[in-house]
Amino acid sequence: MNFLAVIGRITVSFLQATGRLGIFGALSLYHIFTPPFYFRSLLRQMMTVGYYSLPVVGLTALFTGAALALNIFEGGSRFNAQSALPTIVVIGIVRELGPVLSGLIVAGRVSASMAAELGTMRVTEQIDAMATLSTDPFKYLIAPRIVATTLMMPLMLVVVADVIGVMGGFLIATGKLNFNAGNYMTQTMDFLEATDVYTSLSKAAVFGFFIALMGCYHGYHSRGGAQGVGISTTNAVVSACMLILLSNYIVTEIFFAS
């Protein structure tokens, strides 16, 4: 009997959490599309999320592209398929590694900082204070963060990650593995299809939405001082990463079918 009770309790609390998150997400979407809009906050968030994440996203992509080229060359040489290296690198980076690794890195950077900032604002009553100043925290704090991250992930970060990732592969291939630079670029461009780019950018937008949503959700519901803020920061990063990996599969499946 006790065992059944445990299963029941886990199920109920899972459903509760899903429901709360669903309501939070719906409310956020509602507030994104209804005025007033706070453009100053939006610009500030775009700067923090987009511009300041560039170095770390760029470095990640560069080394991933380089390592991928080495691995593909090594693996490909086992059945004389080294010449497919440029194609595999560009498809691997653009369709999968560029968006997913950027997503995970940005989740660590941005979800955590959003959860910590909103959490601190919650426990120091700043969010309550905002409501008493006739300003909806959903509009002033949450909507700009979600919009900024959902836009900056595809339009800035993942575009840059894809390009630098391919360049990482290019540098290793031409510098170390004796590929001809011109041929490498031709092959890359010839085999890259528009669907690959759509997949990459769609993933980026979905990941961006989840990154900001998790950061805001956990931060907004923080309670209990420094420890509570710490817990919500951890939860934000972990749940954002999980959602990224899960939705990565789903988006891939959608584009695979088409």
């Binding site: 007033p36 706070y38 900032e117 604002m121 120091t124 009553e125 700043q126 309550d128 204070a129 905002m130 409501a131 008493t132 100043l133 006739s134 300003t135 002033y140």
Partner: peptide, 29 residues
């Protein structure tokens, strides 16, 4: 809510904004 003003126990000032932006927050928003 526009009829109310509140002084919070810990001040609850927005630490990402300057003092004057804090004071005029309601009017600006």
């Amino acid at each position: 809510q526009q009829k109310f003003g509140m002084l919070f126990q810990g001040g609850a000032l927005f630490d990402s904004l300057q003092v004057w932006e804090n004071i005029s927050f309601g009017l600006l928003a």
